[in-house]
Amino acid sequence: MKKHTTLLSAAIAGAMLLAGCGKKDDTLNLFVWTEYVPQAVLDKFTEETGIKVAMETYSSNEEMTQKLFAGGGNYDLIQPSEYTVEALIKDNYLQPLDHAKIPNLKNLAPEFREMPFDPGNKYSVPWLSGFVGITYNAETIPGPVVGYSDVFTANNAGRIVTLDDSRELVSWAMTASGLPINDVTDENLEKIKPLLQDWMSKIKVFDSDSPKTSLSNGDVDIGVIWSGEGAILFNQNPKFQWVLPAEGFHMFIDSLAIPKTAKNKEMAEEFINFILRPDIGKMILDEFPYYSPNAEARKLLSDAERNNPASYPPGLDITKALLFKDVGAQGSKVDELITSLKVQ
C-alpha cells in the first residue's frame, strides 16, 4: 500500500516538474466558445506576429466562469456574452483595455461602441452578435408568421423546436406578456407561468446546440432558434423563412475581454486589434453567419451573405433589440420554473 502511495506522489511530482518546464510566457492563452474562433484566424495571427496561441474551449458562460474562478488556467482572453461581461465588470474581474493599443476599434459599428453593459468598450470588444428569432418551413406552415403568438398555436402543437435555455424561454414569455425581459422577479415569473405552461406543452424538441437538425429532418416545422442556425437553414433551403418576433427580439453579443488574472495583457490586446481588421472579420463571418459588429468587415461580405435574412434581417432597427442583463442568483429560480414545467 505504502509503495503505491510513494509511487503516486512521485508520479505527481514528476508530472508537475514536466508541466512546469513546458510553461512558456510567449503564448497567448485563449479561453473561448467551442468552434467559434476559426483555426485559420489563429494561424494567420501566429504567422504575422510570431505569437503562439493556445486555445481552450467551453460551451456555456457558466462553464467558463466556473473554470475561471477555480483558477484552472491562466487565461489571457475570454469570450463572455453580454450579461456575463456585465457581471464580471461589476465583480472587478476584467482589466480595462488600453485603447491606444487597439486602433482598429474604429471599425466597430457605432451602435456596438455604446452598449449598455460596457459603454465605450472600456472592458470588452464585441466578437459576433446575433438574434433569437423564428424559423419556419414555408411549405408546411401557411403563415403569416410575425411573432410568438403565431408560433405557439394549437395547430402547431407537437411541431415546434425551441432553444433548450431557461432564460430564453422565460424572456420570450415576458416579451409576449409586455413585461421588460430583465425584470425577472418572483412576481413576474408567477405571472408568465400559465402562458409558458401552455407554450411548453406544445414544444416537441428542446435543443440549443443544433436546433436546425430537427427542422431540416422534417421532424418539426417551426422553431425559435439562434439566427446563425436560421441562416444555415436558409442557405440549405430557402423554404426556411426567418422572422424577428414582432413582440420584441433578443440580441446576444459575445465579446472578447481580458480577465484580471491574465499574464499577457499586451498580446491579448494585439489579438483584439487583429480580429477587428476587416479582412480578419470577413474570415470569421465566412465560417459563422452571424451579425457582425464590425462595420468594415460587413462591407466585404458577398451579396448572398448579406442577403441572408437571418444574418442580416431586412429593415432591422438595432435600437429595438433587447439585451439580457445579468440576473444573478435569480437564474436558479428561472431554471427551476422551466424544469418544473417540463416535468409536468
Partner: peptide, 11 residues
C-alpha cells in the same frame, strides 16, 4: 469529444 461537441453547432 470536445472538438466534436463544438462542431455540432456549425453542422
Amino acid at each position: 469529444p470536445l472538438k466534436v461537441y463544438g462542431m455540432v453547432r456549425v453542422g
